[in-house]
Amino acid sequence: MKKHLITGFALLALFQLKAQQQPTDSTSTYKSTKLTLDEINLVSSYYKQDGNHSAVEGGIGTQELTDLSNTLDVKLTKYGSTGKKHSFGLEVGIDHYTSASSDKIDPSTVSSASYGDNRFYPSLSYGWEDEEKGKAITAGVSSSTEFDYQSFGANIGYSKKTKNKNGEFSAKFQTYLDQIKLITPIELRTSGGYGTDNRNTYAFSLGYSQIVNKSFQVMFMADVISQQGYLGLPFHRVYFTDGSVHQEKLPDSRLKIPIGVRASYFLGDNFIIRAYYRYYSDDWKLTAHTFDVEVPVKLSSFVSISPFYRFYSQQGAKYFKAYAQHSDSDEFYTSNYDLSTFDSNFIGAGIRLAPPKGVFGWSHFNMLEIRYGHYSRTDGLSSNIISLNIRYK
Rank of each mutant, 00 (worst) to 15 (best):
D282L: 07
R278A: 05
V218K: 04
G192A: 12
W284T: 00
Q217C: 04
M219K: 12
R274G: 08
D283S: 06
N200T: 11
Y230R: 11
P185Y: 00
L182S: 10
V212H: 06
I211R: 04
I273K: 06
D197Y: 11
S170Q: 04
N200F: 09
Y208W: 13
G195F: 07
D197E: 08
N198Y: 14
G268Y: 04
E248I: 04
K256M: 11
M221N: 09
T196Q: 15
N213V: 14
P234T: 14
Q228G: 13
T287M: 05
D178C: 02
L255C: 03
T201M: 14
E248G: 03
S209G: 15
P234R: 13
V218L: 09
Q227S: 08
Y279W: 09
Y194D: 10
N198E: 06
K256W: 07
S244V: 03
Y176F: 13
E187L: 06
P258D: 03
A203Q: 07
Q174W: 03
D223L: 06
G243C: 07
D282A: 09
G229C: 07
H246F: 05
S281Q: 14
Y279S: 03
G207N: 08
D223R: 03
N198D: 07
L182W: 05
Y230A: 08
M219G: 10
S281W: 05
F266E: 14
L233A: 14
T184E: 15
I186H: 08
S205P: 09
I211G: 01
D252Y: 13
Y208S: 06
G229M: 05
A275W: 02
L206K: 08
L231V: 06
L250N: 05
I259N: 01
F235T: 00
L267Q: 09
F216W: 12
F204W: 08
K181H: 02
R254P: 11
Q174F: 03
K285L: 07
R262H: 09
Q227G: 02
Q228F: 09
L250Y: 05
Q247G: 10
N213H: 05
S226W: 08
S170G: 15
D242H: 02
Y276K: 04
Q210M: 12
L286C: 01
Y208C: 08
D197P: 07
A288R: 01
M219R: 14
R199I: 07
L255R: 11
I257G: 11
S264T: 13
E248P: 15
F169P: 09
R278C: 01
M221W: 02
F271I: 11
V212I: 03
L206W: 11
K181M: 10
T196E: 11
K256N: 11
